[in-house]
């Protein structure tokens, strides 16, 4: 019934996440949809971007032909040199993360549980995976936002009651923005906050693995 309902595209997810970044905050963006978020942050907000490759206040990606191997982000993409950057070592990069100096991180996920457990580093069928900076970000950032598609390629829900993939962190996710809804994991369970245009709470529940707590005042996804 919901199979052919229209879902939001990745840019809209990123746009919705951008609204969550307070002016003056320091933000670490993961790979994939999270990377797109910076495109939708207005200049007035003065958001500071942190990359665990060892650079703060980093700017846009480098133009083709001007790649510098000594200026990359954590995804291995080349960055432009912009005013106000600072370089530092990996130990400082993660001191910033664990020490609570990174206000918001936006990550992708394989699964998020009703209480905010995050699984994003290994697909069990592969048997081996990369943790990279994900566990530190999950443990350290003040606010962890997950930006992802609501269901995987086979249609399985990624918002689940309990994760059955290996965890990245427990109870760490504070907000989930998907292509059909905005959800908030809480100790009492997954609260539905907003639905994508044309989606009812019941339809969101249908494609969700976690039991949703549906308050009276569900907003429409606002970007």
């Amino acid at each position: 019934m919901t199979d052919d309902k229209e879902r939001l595209d990745r840019a809209i997810i990123a746009m919705r996440v951008a609204k969550e970044l307070p002016a003056g905050s320091c933000v670490n963006l993961g790979i994939g949809i999270p990377t797109l978020v910076s495109m939708f942050v207005d200049d007035e907000s003065v958001v500071f971007y942190h990359s665990e490759s060892g650079v703060l206040n980093c700017g846009p990606l480098a133009d083709e032909g001007s790649e510098d191997i000594d200026l990359i982000n954590a995804g291995g993409q080349f960055l432009q040199s912009v005013p106000g950057m600072a370089y530092f070592s990996s130990v400082e990069a993660f001191a910033m993360i664990r020490g609570g100096h990174v206000d918001v991180t936006v990550l992708g996920a394989h699964q998020v549980s009703a209480t905010g457990d995050l699984a994003n580093w290994m697909l069990p069928e592969r048997g081996v995976g990369n943790i990279g900076g994900a566990m530190d970000l999950a443990a350290g950032a003040d606010k962890v936002i997950v930006a992802m598609e609501h269901n995987d390629r086979s249609g399985n829900p990624k918002v689940v009651q309990e994760c059955n993939f290996p965890l990245t962190g427990r109870g760490c996710v504070s907000l989930i923005v998907t292509d059909v809804a905005v959800l908030e994991p809480t100790p009492d369970g997954m609260v539905l906050r907003e639905t994508a245009p044309g989606w009812t709470p019941e339809e969101v529940q249908e494609v969700t693995g976690a039991r949703l707590i549906i308050p009276d005042n569900i907003a429409e996804y606002e970007v």
Binding site: C26, F48, H50, V55, L56, N57, S81, V82, P83, G84, M85, A86, Y87, F88, E92, M96, H101, V102
Partner: peptide
């Protein structure tokens, strides 16, 4: 100074702190 007024290699305390 304006942003960019300190060489990023010479920043000892990044602004995040």
């Amino acid at each position: 100074v304006e942003p960019g007024g300190i060489d990023p290699e010479l920043v000892i305390t990044p602004g995040i702190f």
